[in-house]
Design a binder for these strands. Structure first.
Lengths: 219, 219
DNA sequence: ATACCCGCCAAACACTTGTGCTGTCAAGCC
DNA sequence: GGCTTGACAGCACAAGTGTTTGGCGGGTAT
């Protein structure tokens, strides 16, 4: 038998879920079963109830029994009734070679914050994500320009080729580069043809985070 | 006669309003009249209805007639009162030359939505902002890569050099290019050294929107 | 074939919930 | 004292809304 995976939902269930999301964000309260039925041209309320039960079981929505208009979208999306989950602290600026305050040095709760799309930050680990404003064009070939905001997830290790914020202990400087581990040393590669890579002993580098997203405003 | 100022409400109304606020933030949906009645030990539903009418008239809450649990607190609650202001419809895909559904052709309320940082979308004009996913690398030199999401503000005109979504009437195609008005014709310039600009008569081009932001996920 | 499960349909049912109507009562005003 | 008004009470009704039951057709497994 072909079992549907616990995370996949049928086309009709997708429609219903989207309708609920949009309804809530538009009206501020949940649609009734009959609202859904009429909007999606479903011929019976029981079909809606049936699919709602599945969506609940699979964790896409939450409901309370017998409560009118008590559907709450859960996954993805804001849902969550107005709590702003997607604001991360903007901890400072990162340049080709300039200093960067350690994330620990800045109180994240007092820092400026930027709102980020939830797709860019795995919400379940949102506490580990922070933002930095980029100065300079050392990563221009990686499509990161001066003034862009990069989102980083805090992590101490990196795979070759990943873009990271790397701290050079000797220089007490932090830089945004592509990371390559090469035996005893580490190559920090700018994404700019006019700039040369930096080679440093592996024990002189601390990864401070990996770039998980880029936001650019052209206004 | 001492008229109560339009902004002051009685103790009972204050209680009701607070109860609604707390209920919504806790459960994600509004209380029913009887919920309020029981919680505040009010002896009749009509009293709740009566005070709800006053709260509505004075602008503290919003309701829809006959809708169960349709109360929405309005005041207070900085920002958005539960409504997510920063979601824009993702209307489709844009390529170097491929077709794009007209924004009007897609029901924005049924489209997928992306949450965008408020900085990227002038919130006061949010209704005019939409998102498109970029396919191809025709704008690679403008630091826009395949898979990026571009935010566009709907507008019919553009300054030279601005990046726009342009519709070519003859080809019924939409493309993401830099816009240059050159006399009787328009030059649509890709940001990719391997691609050539397109020259079209000015009356064959309709601007569909201007790029105001870029979002890229590297996860 | 037969049995079974899934997704759907139709209709009835029963609970939930907003509304309307009729009073009561105290306070202010002529 | 009469009259009006604001706030509240009690109650019944009707509309809104979730739930349930029985049935149907098309697949899939036995």
């Amino acid at each position: 038998m072909r079992r549907s995976s616990p995370d996949t939902i049928s086309a009709r269930q997708t429609d219903i879920f989207h309708y609920i999301e949009n309804f809530v964000s538009q009206y501020g309260y949940s649609p009734s079963i009959r609202d859904i039925q009429n909007a999606l041209n479903i011929s019976s309320t029981s079909v809606v109830a049936y699919n709602l039960r599945i969506l609940t079981a699979k964790g896409w929505i939450e409901r309370e029994d017998k409560i009118s208009r008590g559907i709450r979208p859960k996954r993805n999306r804001n849902g969550n009734g107005g709590i702003d989950l997607f604001r991360v602290p903007l901890l400072g600026t990162i340049t080709a070679g300039g200093p960067l305050p350690e994330p620990e040095e800045v109180d994240p709760s007092s820092a400026d914050k930027v709102t980020v799309p939830p797709d860019l930050a795995d919400v379940s680990r949102l506490g580990d994500v922070y933002a930095l404003k980029v100065r300079g064009q050392s990563m221009i070939d990686a499509l990161i320009d001066d003034g862009d905001i990069v989102l980083l997830r805090f992590q101490n290790t990196a795979e070759n080729g990943q873009m990271v914020a790397a701290r050079l202990l000797d220089d007490n400087a932090v830089t945004l580069k592509k990371f390559y581990h090469e035996g005893e040393r580490v190559r920090l590669q700018p994404a700019n043809q006019t700039m040369s890579p930096i080679y440093v002993p592996a024990d002189n580098v601390v990864i401070q985070g990996r770039v998980v997203g880029v936001i650019r405003s052209l206004i």
